Simulated assay, not measured.
Amino acid sequence: MTFSLVARCAETGMFGVAISSSSPAVAARCSHARAGVGAVASQNVTDPALGPMALDLMEGGMSAPNAVAEVRRRGKFIDYRQVLAVDAQGRAAIHSGTHALGIWTQAQAPDVAAGGNLLANDRVPQAMVDAFLGQAGYLGDRLIAALRAGLAAGGEAGPVHSAGMMLVDKVSWPVADLRCDWTEDCPVEEVATAWEVYKPQLDAYVQRALDPRAAPSYGVPGDE
């Protein structure tokens, strides 16, 4: 019930996850990323524990392919899961279990992996990878382009209701974690709009956490 993409920016080392689903709050359960380590999506009859497991394995020195292989060995009911991962060297890996729902497929290239289930057709993940690779610039912009491309290629077999985009970079928390947990409209465009608003402020929010004395004005009534 999901299509997603995990990616690394080769220039900055940032990682990101972009995801959408007919289920509510998909990003809260399925998106995982850790600065300097990698990004993982765990989906399809989701086991959220698989994301941190894969990240721990990569942080311990495993490549994404080896980490996904170990997740397959350790994970419960792994034939029902999809797991996508990319590591700090840009190596990508995907596991799609034989009990993945409906039309399911996957695509990958250096620095990026995409996969989905209950899809409208088997072209959706490749469309996402192509869109990501076809656009230069900020990782967040490329993730939004990939989400839009997946939706334009058909997306899920039915309407999607939630979406999310996560970015990590250098600090221990996500520098962006934007979500639409439920809408009857287009959740991808809801997240895209949130990104347009958040992107110009991203660096300021990080600065406020690291040293508020050097932070720019908050830009709210009463702030001087």
Rank of each mutant, 00 (worst) to 15 (best):
residue 3 F to Q: 00
residue 180 C to I: 07
residue 11 E to I: 01
residue 124 V to I: 11
residue 18 A to K: 00
residue 202 L to Y: 02
residue 217 S to I: 13
residue 11 E to T: 12
residue 69 A to W: 00
residue 71 V to E: 12
residue 192 A to M: 08
residue 17 V to P: 02
residue 217 S to N: 10
residue 8 R to Q: 05
residue 29 R to D: 08
residue 18 A to V: 12
residue 48 P to Y: 05
residue 107 A to D: 13
residue 57 L to F: 10
residue 161 H to G: 00
residue 6 V to D: 01
residue 86 V to W: 00
residue 219 G to M: 14
residue 53 M to T: 12
residue 117 N to S: 15
residue 164 G to K: 09
residue 16 G to Q: 02
residue 63 S to R: 12
residue 197 V to T: 14
residue 57 L to S: 07
residue 124 V to H: 03
residue 80 Y to V: 01
residue 97 G to K: 09
residue 133 L to F: 04
residue 147 L to Y: 06
residue 80 Y to N: 10
residue 55 L to R: 05
residue 25 A to E: 07
residue 138 Y to H: 15
residue 46 T to D: 07
residue 57 L to A: 11
residue 133 L to C: 13
residue 73 R to H: 12
residue 66 N to S: 13
residue 3 F to S: 05
residue 212 P to L: 09
residue 70 E to D: 09
residue 107 A to P: 07
residue 122 D to A: 15
residue 13 G to K: 09
residue 131 A to P: 05
residue 38 G to W: 00
residue 56 D to K: 08
residue 55 L to G: 07
residue 178 L to H: 03
residue 101 L to W: 06
residue 126 Q to R: 13
residue 221 P to R: 13
residue 14 M to F: 03
residue 64 A to L: 08
residue 130 D to S: 10
residue 5 L to G: 02
residue 191 V to P: 07
residue 28 A to P: 00
residue 15 F to W: 09
residue 8 R to A: 05
residue 103 I to K: 09
residue 120 A to L: 07
residue 47 D to P: 03
residue 70 E to T: 14
residue 17 V to H: 00
residue 154 G to S: 06
residue 167 L to D: 00
residue 22 S to K: 13
residue 223 D to C: 15
residue 173 W to D: 01
residue 11 E to M: 01
residue 197 V to C: 02
residue 190 E to Q: 13
residue 105 T to A: 06
residue 58 M to V: 12
residue 187 P to E: 05
residue 68 V to M: 11
residue 165 M to W: 01
residue 84 L to N: 04
residue 42 S to G: 11
residue 102 G to S: 09
residue 216 P to S: 13
residue 190 E to Y: 02
residue 71 V to L: 13
residue 185 D to F: 02
residue 102 G to N: 12
residue 87 D to R: 07
residue 196 E to D: 11
residue 135 Q to C: 12
residue 188 V to M: 06
residue 185 D to W: 05
residue 95 H to A: 11
residue 33 A to T: 03
residue 79 D to P: 00
residue 131 A to L: 02
residue 171 V to G: 06
residue 215 A to H: 11
residue 11 E to H: 08
residue 45 V to K: 04
residue 45 V to G: 01
residue 153 A to N: 08
residue 99 H to Q: 15
residue 16 G to L: 07
residue 204 A to L: 09
residue 89 Q to K: 14
residue 144 I to P: 00
residue 194 A to V: 02
residue 25 A to S: 14
residue 21 S to I: 09
residue 138 Y to T: 02
residue 25 A to K: 02
residue 17 V to G: 02
residue 48 P to Q: 08
residue 107 A to I: 05
residue 116 G to M: 05
residue 148 R to Y: 01
residue 3 F to C: 04
residue 84 L to M: 11
residue 91 R to Q: 15
residue 77 F to H: 14
residue 211 D to N: 15
residue 27 A to H: 04
residue 222 G to Y: 10
residue 222 G to K: 13
residue 180 C to P: 02
residue 140 G to R: 04
residue 46 T to V: 15
residue 3 F to N: 03
residue 224 E to Q: 14
residue 157 A to H: 09
residue 211 D to A: 14
residue 201 Q to S: 08
residue 165 M to L: 15
residue 18 A to P: 07
